[in-house]
């Protein structure tokens, strides 16, 4: 109770920051895989697959991440599935990030000029060969700046995992504040750490955007 900020507290915050990074990576990896599948589904030749994936994207983009976290952590146990805070947070981020990255990447794939598809078709390449050898290599170049930019959103959104009891950076700040009662100091430190994590990534994204020309996709912000 009470006391002042000491090395143990800072260690605790550092630990929380590491979990923020870890959770971000889980979100990026899981969401990346989900997003890739969604992007391919969104441009599938099958109408049903396109409709289903478009529905998923609309549904998730129209739902706050906070609510998705509540649903996975508190909702699933009522259906008999108990999940740990880490699993709940990781799964929620995957679901959420997948919807956004899926849209960013769909846009990137579609912005590869149509004649490139035709040229590849004219050379008798199969659909998967056209995709992997002609379209995706060009789409990845287009997708890189907005994807890096979206990582900033992922990092900030991991703070919502605190609502399911997951101790990441924001939650560890809350816990320390509960004993020290120095909200201004502690939350300033927390904000500074988030900024230190996000700012370099924003800079990288900005630089990549300049290098790849004016074509950049606007992001839905969370």
């Amino acid at each position: 109770m009470g006391g002042s900020l000491n090395a143990n507290h800072l260690m605790f915050l550092g630990h929380g920051a590491l979990w923020t990074i870890g959770l971000s990576l889980i979100g990026l990896l899981g969401g990346g895989i989900a997003g890739f599948v969604i992007a391919l589904c969104r441009i599938s030749p099958s109408l049903i697959v396109r409709l289903l994936s478009a529905g998923y994207v609309q549904l998730i983009q129209g739902t706050p991440l906070l609510v998705i976290m509540f649903l996975t952590y508190f909702g699933l146990p009522t259906l008999g599935v108990t999940v740990s805070p880490l699993t709940a947070a990781g799964a929620s981020l995957t679901i959420y990030v997948g919807a956004y990255l899926g849209e960013i990447w769909r846009g990137s794939i579609e912005s590869v000029p149509k004649p490139q598809w035709e040229a590849a078709e004219g050379l008798a390449l199969s659909r998967s060969q056209r995709m992997t050898k002609v379209i995706l290599p060009q789409a990845i170049r287009i997708a890189t700046p907005p994807t890096v930019g979206f990582m900033v959103q992922i990092i900030k959104n991991t703070s919502l995992a605190s609502v399911v009891g997951f101790v990441e950076l924001a939650r560890s700040g809350q816990i320390i504040n509960n004993s020290l009662f120095e909200p201004f100091l502690i939350y300033t430190i927390i904000a500074a750490i988030y900024f230190a994590l996000c700012y370099p990534i924003s800079r990288i994204s900005r630089r990549l955007e300049r290098r790849s020309g004016p074509a950049s996709l606007s992001l839905g912000t969370a």
């Binding site: 490139q116 040229a119 590849a120 004219g122 050379l123 060969q129 050898k133 002609v134 290599p137 060009q138």
Partner: peptide, 27 residues
């Protein structure tokens, strides 16, 4: 059937050699 278009449509991420060898190798 070979087709050549008005706008060339070479693959910009591949060298000329890779543009040419892509289809013979993969198809």
């Amino acid at each position: 059937v070979g087709i050549v278009f008005q706008s060339y449509n070479l693959f910009p991420h591949l060298t000329i050699e890779e543009n040419i060898t892509l289809a013979p190798c993969s198809v």
